[in-house]
Design a protein around this nucleic acid. Structure first.
Length: 296
DNA sequence: ACCCAGGGTCGTC
DNA sequence: GACGACCCTGGG
């Protein structure tokens, strides 16, 4: 087990007034992240990178506090995607058709996070044929065992372990951490990243989303769906990626293919329609649809 | 008790 | 391209 130095940083806080398109419940429970948890007061606390933050929304004011490695306003600006104009995106998408317009009304406070590529990759490898509570539990266990502690307000939080920190973890130890059959996939990703056989930083240089997706799928346990999630939810931020899971398949069948049996509905058909309708914003459209269908 | 599904992927045919 | 297997857990 890693017993490195505790990360010590000063506490910081930030208030953002007149915040638009930011509803904590929707941001943190639309399926893009697994390390944000709701508190008794309705606020959310999460760990990302070497930061622990608590986010509370009161009316149209966002109160953020916690400890950050760098200046909190810079960290927040990037992680919460504050440079993107979601009003404009929602306007464009709402004009596509009534269905997406209704889903946007339902989840108008959704916003995509710029999450660390490594953490997103491993998290979504773990997500395969799994459910959200268990995914969260596994990621929590990995972080507690192999990440570094950050103390804040009586509590200890743990960073998501780097590839380096997972260097000596065996497949059996992953199994004991609850990963199930995904144990070997994570071990494989760690090995390939550490040996530079797979270079994460090179991925940012690839412009074409399809090529980038192929590259991600070279890794064990990364199929189309996982690759699409990494493209959309990590800081690779490919808004044209359209992950199709059981929920999205369900909602797309209901809305656009009512006469086709769900099992016979080809994923290619769904993605072609998504591209045609939502173009380079398909990924964001997917989040509105996913949240809508899953909550309702 | 038993079965099923869950933000799928892989190996085999 | 279709099909079954796969770790594990919570809910019916």
């Amino acid at each position: 087990m890693h017993t490195g130095d505790k990360i010590k940083m000063k506490e910081q806080s930030l208030i953002i007034k007149n915040i638009k398109s930011f509803e904590p419940k929707q941001v943190f429970e639309c399926g893009q992240c697994f390390r944000w948890n709701v508190e008794d007061d309705g606020s959310y606390t999460g760990v990302f990178g070497e930061n622990v933050l608590n986010v509370k929304k009161i009316k149209d004011e966002l109160k953020i506090k916690g400890i950050c490695k760098r200046e909190i306003n810079e960290v927040v600006q990037v992680y919460f995607d504050l440079d993107r104009n979601y009003d404009e995106i929602k306007n464009i998408l709402s004009k596509v058709d009534k269905n997406i317009a209704e889903s946007i009304k339902y989840g108008e406070g959704i916003r995509l996070l710029n999450q660390d590529l490594w953490e997103t990759l491993i998290s979504f490898i773990i997500s395969a044929n799994n459910n959200i509570p268990r995914i969260k539990k596994i990621i929590d266990t990995l972080s507690k065992k192999y990440g570094r502690p950050i103390k804040w307000q009586e509590n200890t939080y743990y960073t998501f372990p780097t590839a380096e920190e997972l260097k000596n973890v065996t497949v059996q130890e992953y199994r004991e951490a609850g990963l199930g059959f995904r144990d070997k996939y994570v071990a494989d990703a760690v090995k390939k990243v550490l040996s530079k056989e797979f270079k994460l930083e090179e991925l940012y240089k690839i412009e074409n989303t399809a090529i980038l997706k192929e590259k991600l799928m070279e890794l064990q346990g990364v199929g189309e769906k996982v690759a699409d999630c990494v493209l959309l939810f990590s800081d690779l931020k490919r808004l044209d990626a359209f992950p199709v899971d059981v929920w999205v398949r369900r909602v797309m069948k209901e809305l656009y293919f009512p006469d086709i049996e769900e099992k016979k509905l080809d994923k290619k058909q769904i993605q072609e329609l998504a591209k045609k309708k939502y173009s380079n914003l398909a990924g964001i459209a997917q989040q509105y649809l996913f949240y809508w269908k899953r909550e309702a």
